[in-house]
Design a protein around this nucleic acid. Structure first.
Lengths: 181, 181
DNA sequence: GTCTATACGACGATAGAC
DNA sequence: GTCTATCGTCGTATAGAC
């Protein structure tokens, strides 16, 4: 019994960090919800940041994989579109949508977190890789914005206005057009 | 002498909040840089949040004005473009660029701040006002993204790659094309 | 190996003296 | 208008019970 305390901490922490923000969520809050003390958390994780690290590591691995795949391909409108579609699929993966949402909402609080910095670097690398050295500023911004459109759909529109599937399809369509500029 | 302590607090606080983040900046840090104690800050401002409120109030007023102007106009590609251009000009205003940058970087920390909530509402209202009830999801997302493109240029591109003016012009061009979808 | 009890310095905030 | 002193809570750390 209670051998899965570690994963229960991850689950509760991710939910509270996303709902209330990382800094606004205290370890006491997490511990109380689980019926243990703060100190128990420190047995399973070195620091508060370490709980985050355990959550975001898999997302970094996926981005590494995506970047590696794209580097080996020709850069055409077609492959750029495929990249954005793969990225969108990644965001819709079973567990990682919650992690992505947490990262979106806690960029500032996490700005010195090593894994977060790496994730941000991979995103920049992907954007840079889409445009060679000869690309115009308009092309660079359009292509970067195309990747971003997949994220943006979620919080640019009022809630309940459209279904999640409608937003997803429409955001991909906007991204596709941005890549054709 | 030192009758302008209030504005000096605002100046130092805005800089540190933007550079290090709101929660990562302590009142002790601000006070020490000014050569006073924490308690002195509490004479000029009720709370830490109150320092922020004094900074962002003028930006809310400008957004209110912009929304009011747009409401009274016909909704065409031409007026939507003019809206985005006015918004971009607003961002380039002498003092408000620093405040806009602070707000960009501290969304999560400020999520319960009354003025911040109002600013976010005005942005949503502007996005909604650009598309009537008959607009398609693709049109809605494109137009929202057009406003966002003006912000995005700054942190989508690697630093030093392009001048601030080049980024500004290219972002506006991308926005213009998004409005023509 | 899993957790509790207890304590540390720094934080935002307040009360009251000068 | 600015100070000292103090409050409760925070993240963090360790000693030791089971």
């Amino acid at each position: 019994m209670r051998e899965d305390t570690r994963s229960r901490i991850q689950e509760v922490a991710l939910r509270l960090f996303t709902e209330q923000g990382y800094e606004a969520t205290s370890l006491r809050e997490i511990a109380e919800e689980l019926g243990v003390t703060k100190a128990a958390l420190y047995y399973h994780f070195k620091t508060k940041d370490d709980i985050v690290a355990s959550l975001v590591d898999s997302r970094l691995a996926e981005l590494d994989e995506l970047l590696e795949w794209f580097k080996g391909r020709e850069k055409t409108t077609e492959t750029r579109r495929e990249l954005v579609e793969r990225y969108a699929d990644l965001l819709r993966g079973t567990r990682h949508i919650e992690v992505a949402r947490f990262l979106e909402r806690n960029q500032t609080a996490m700005r010195d977190h090593p894994t977060l910095i790496k994730i941000r670097d991979r995103m920049m690398d992907l954007a840079a890789e889409m445009s060679g050295p000869g690309a115009t500023p308009v092309e660079r911004i359009s292509r970067s914005l195309a990747m971003f459109a997949v994220h943006a759909g979620k919080w640019l529109l009022k809630e309940g206005e459209l279904s999640e599937d409608e937003v997803h399809k429409a955001a991909l369509e906007v991204a596709r057009r941005l890549l054709e500029i």
